[in-house]
Design a protein around this nucleic acid. Structure first.
Lengths: 242, 242
DNA sequence: CGTCGCTTTGACGGTGCTCAAAGGCTGTGG
DNA sequence: CCACAGCCTTTGAGCACCGTCAAAGCGACG
């Protein structure tokens, strides 16, 4: 099973074959969104739920002076706005810096899943909690870690998240971002991102060529970044009552 | 109605008198937690749901070297861990820096609310989305704003949140934190927090004496901080179908 | 009155920003 | 196949914001 949505949700609930078939059915690619295009814009209210099935997207917020802060990366298997119809207007924008495949799922389909498929409902709720925990972890990184550790931490997170959906191998993954994008993510200037990358390269912790990140020694990178994957809650369904 | 839980949830759904009675019944203060005490510790799994009804609490995370990052303030009407039983172990700690009143609500009671009281269920889900939006906003502040604007933004947020639960008047509120705590929140050193406070005081934007914050001109502070309250989604239930 | 915790101040150093320009890569059109 | 444009990366120099260290005020409370 190489469907990233299913691979991801397996970590949040003990799915049955029927659950998997339902998820497979709703996650057919419906449209390709080009590079540098907004999927959902701040201030609007989306009618459907968007699911990423290929490529990268990100949540971001623009400040009056034009500065941008990326607050999340969305990778295949991630929902853009699962519960957003509960809220009024979007308080941030979701965009594809880098071209991605999206499924638009009608609100009613989601409601039906939540009502009639308890294991899927559980997994979806689990995934929103993981999103929140990830956000907290980014905040900790930004507030307390040096630029190099913050960057290293992000790389560890992406490696693990992409591995769980089958899009990274043991020590590398495709990473289509520019250094400007990375700066907007980490709260750093491009110049400093560049120097930080050189530092990590000099320590032989990361190499990044041709839009692909390679990690010579994953354990060393994790310990450098104090990476503690608990916040991703990947083993949570082990704890379920049988 | 001065119950902070009810006042808050009124912003997330159109409650009936019966809903209010139910909420009133579950939010009786059951225990006082002293200053500097953890309510829920990282790595454990809480059995009940904790609701703050008085004072301040905060979520925080400790790094191996002892640094602390506060990721959220919890004020009266806020839940500590509404959905956390879905997850395995807590990935962060919730503590009271400052003494607060807490209600412990059995998991079963929450489940019953979610199942049988649709408007309350809606309001609870709304509140977790607002928590997430607040986290995103903190991340934006930390990544893109200067220390003084970040601090000003936080003060605007707290003023508004406390006003909605009846714990702030038009231009001031009680704020029991130390400057160390503020530093751990903003990702700044104590020394720099102190100088930043002096700067804001010098601009006549904020005064902070005897654990109470006073804001001479709220509109001026908001515009200084680029404060845009959309992320708190306080007007969302206006948009509900009748 | 003395202690303890919090706030404030000063001096100094470093991380990371700004400005500016050069170097590389890729795609496009001649 | 080359020229060129445009974007991204890389470098350098200088500076500002913010951190660290250390010590001195201040205030609440016993």
């Amino acid at each position: 099973m190489s469907n990233p949505l299913i691979r991801k949700l397996e970590h949040g609930a003990l799915l049955t074959d029927e659950d998997r078939a339902v998820l497979e059915a709703i996650s057919r690619v419906s449209r390709r969104v080009p590079t540098n295009h907004d999927i959902i814009t701040e201030g609007t209210r989306p009618a459907a739920v968007n699911l990423i099935m290929g490529g990268f997207a990100c949540r971001y917020k623009l400040l009056p002076d034009g500065q941008r802060q990326i607050t999340a990366f969305l990778v295949p298997g991630d929902f853009c706005d699962l519960h957003v119809t509960l809220l009024g207007e979007m308080d941030h924008t979701i965009g594809t810096g880098w071209g991605c495949d999206i499924v638009e799922i009608p609100r009613a389909t989601i409601d039906e899943l939540l009502q009639n498929h308890p294991r899927i409902a559980r997994a979806l709720r689990w995934s929103t909690l993981v999103d929140e925990a990830t956000l907290r972890t980014w905040l900790v990184s930004m507030g307390q870690r040096s630029a190099s550790k913050q960057l290293a931490h992000l790389v560890c997170e992406l490696l693990l998240r992409l591995q769980t959906v089958g899009l990274a191998d043991a020590d590398s993954f495709d990473f289509p971002l520019s250094q400007v994008d990375l700066g907007d993510t980490l709260g750093l200037s491009v110049v400093h991102v560049n120097r930080t990358l050189q530092e990590l390269r000099g320590l032989n912790l990361i190499s990044w060529k041709h839009k692909r990140v390679h990690i010579p020694d994953v354990e060393r990178l994790k310990s450098f970044a104090d990476f503690e994957p608990r916040y991703l809650h990947l083993d949570d369904c082990r704890d379920l009552p049988a």
